[in-house]
């Protein structure tokens, strides 16, 4: 698994910056979740964010996709700086994400969940939808084909018609990834995609993430606690601790950084 990651790193060394966050500060009442954090994501790379619990990793993703609005700082995506954009607007600009605790549509089947990822790409009006036959059917079939390719890609053919509420946790995470991929995003944010999985499921998920990055060319921001996974998958790693960015760089450099070791051992705060 190591080799492809390094290859990708070399290939994207010169990649253009897709997203840059500059001097982001986010506070909840008195609590500073993020303090003056700056980091960027280059086209085609897998960018990891790591840090102890409560470090502000999820908050960072929430800022990127518009759930939280940082008090200070700017986020620039594809060259356009923005303040206070709504999440649906940002989704339409090409950012998809998955959640730390699965956020699927429980009342719908796997296929319908994945089809929701295509909603912004469908355009027939409601009268044509009510008639169904004709343009709407053609559109439904075209998007169904895209979803079926994703279903094949993630190897979830057997649960196509199962209501997602009945699926085991590991598969739910996979369906959530499928829904995000159906959006054909330029930037994919994954919040602990492997949390709560067994070894085999983790290996599958790693493979899917790498394949997504290599075959589809999707830029990925990944939050993960499993250091082995992070070191294997990512091209660059940002380390957060108590809302501060304490290290940023290639996995090997970060791993040997004294501040990172301290943060993980809890030295600096005792």
């Amino acid at each position: 698994m190591r080799a492809p990651a390094t290859e990708a790193a070399n290939a994207t060394e010169t990649g253009k910056t897709v997203l840059s966050a500059e001097n982001i500060s986010l506070t909840f009442g008195g609590l500073k979740a993020l303090r003056d954090v700056s980091f960027d994501v280059k086209k085609g790379e897998i960018r990891a964010i790591i840090g102890p619990n409560g470090a502000g990793k999820t908050s960072m993703l929430n800022c990127i996709n518009g759930f939280y609005h940082p008090q200070e700082g700017t986020i620039t995506f594809k060259g356009v700086a923005r303040r206070r954009a709504r999440p649906d607007r940002i989704a339409r600009q090409g950012i998809a994400r998955t959640f730390q605790n699965v956020a699927l549509f429980k009342g719908m089947s796997t296929l319908d969940n994945i089809m929701t990822g295509r909603l912004t790409k469908m355009h027939t009006n409601f009268l044509l939808q009510a008639i169904y036959w004709g343009p709407n059917q053609r559109e439904e079939i075209a998007h169904r084909e895209v979803c079926e390719r994703i279903i094949d890609f993630l190897e979830i053919e057997h649960i196509r018609n199962t209501p997602v509420g009945r699926l085991p946790y590991g598969l739910q995470k996979r369906v959530e990834l499928a829904r995000a991929l159906a959006m054909e995003p330029d930037l994919l944010l994954l919040d602990e995609p492997m949390a709560g999985m067994n070894l085999e499921e983790k290996q599958d998920m790693c493979r899917f993430i790498l394949d997504t990055n290599h075959q589809l060319g999707t830029t990925i921001v990944l939050i993960e606690h499993d250091m082995g996974v992070v070191m294997d998958l990512s091209d660059r790693v940002a380390v957060l601790d108590y809302g501060n960015l304490i290290a940023d760089g290639r996995p090997d450099d970060v791993q040997s950084d004294q501040r990172v070791i301290d943060a993980y051992l809890g030295v600096s705060h005792q």
């Binding site: 699927l104 549509f105 719908m108 027939t124």
Partner: peptide, 23 residues
């Protein structure tokens, strides 16, 4: 069973997730 219905059901099941897929 078209886009409209899936949009509604997405909002019903989880409005936050509905927003992040662009609804």
């Amino acid at each position: 069973r078209s886009r409209m219905g899936r949009t509604w059901m997405a909002v019903r099941d989880m409005d936050i997730a509905a927003e992040i897929i662009g609804i």
